[in-house]
Nucleic acid binder design. Structure first.
Lengths: 156, 156
DNA sequence: GCTCATATCGTAACGATTACTATTTAAGGG
DNA sequence: CCCTTAAATAGTAATCGTTACGATATGAGC
């Protein structure tokens, strides 16, 4: 089943309409599934295929997609919410590496946490439905570039 | 070494002054180290010991403490930044369980990720300096309380 | 085609955060 | 001690991401 069809069904299942606007937004997400787009970025991109679309609609649609678990809403501390299309088969395989130096953000699709989730269930009676794992650090190739201690450096 | 002394040294080491305002804020964090306080909450609490303190100072101080890695700035998606005092010995042992139903937030201080971090180093040449691991789900004791599918339910 | 709930549009309002200016404070040298 | 000077604070205005709102448009079912 193609992704749009799949999403269309999920909309229907919850009695939401897949309007042209929503479809245009979903298409942007599909075309950029490697990215973690902000609302503003989605807004810019969707203007290409649907120039008239309003910003509020982008906010509403992304929020809706998030509720339907079609996208994941996340926050990397840069002051804007970012959204990432999630693949059902990778629901629990969504980790990030964020480099202090170059700012690169790489995604790891591997399930490393199943054992831990079982342990939470066992030890705390807590059933995990989702998780978020972000690693911060530096790539070997970035290490030479000074340290990040002083904010003044950044300011200059 | 007591915590304030320790923090005082870190300030000095970076040529920052530990003013009375900053000390009052740090004390609030120490007194509430189990909590994940928002700026507004810190502001309210610190008013008890330092009534005249301004909100901007709380923002600036928490930002500074975050740069010095004395606190960790985090975001749980509720629209406000939250800060948590971090214990050096627990730098890598800071996970959360967040319950969908009751909203409870529990902290787990156990290092579950050392092996994964070694693997990142090996496979990606990525040196981890910090990580964040949040589990979302439900506690067994909360399960009976309806499902979260419909936003309308929440709105009512 | 008509009806009515749903969705969109554009913009105003909101709330968290940051930026700015004047004032105060603390540390070091006479 | 007092003076100087850089750093810190206070109070508030400005900014910016996000949400709320009223009016208009759309589309599925009859």
């Amino acid at each position: 089943m193609n992704p749009i069809e799949n999403i269309s069904q999920q909309f229907a299942a919850h009695k939401y309409k897949l309007t042209r606007q929503r479809e245009a937004i979903v298409q942007v997400l599909l075309d950029n599934e490697k990215e973690h787009l902000s609302v503003e970025e989605v807004y810019m991109l969707v203007k290409n295929s649907y120039p008239h679309l309003g910003l509020a609609t982008v906010y509403r649609t992304l929020e809706l997609l998030s509720e339907l678990h079609i996208v994941e809403k996340m926050n990397f501390g840069d002051g804007v919410a970012r959204y990432d299309l999630r693949d059902d088969t990778h629901a629990h395989m969504h980790h990030h590496m964020i480099c202090h130096v170059c700012g690169r953000l790489e995604e790891i699709k591997d399930d490393w946490l199943l054992d831990l989730e079982k342990r939470l269930e066992r030890e705390y009676g807590f059933t995990v439905t989702d998780h978020r794992l972000d690693f911060k650090g530096t790539y070997g190739t970035c290490k030479h570039t000074g340290c990040k201690r002083d904010k003044e450096k950044k300011a200059v």
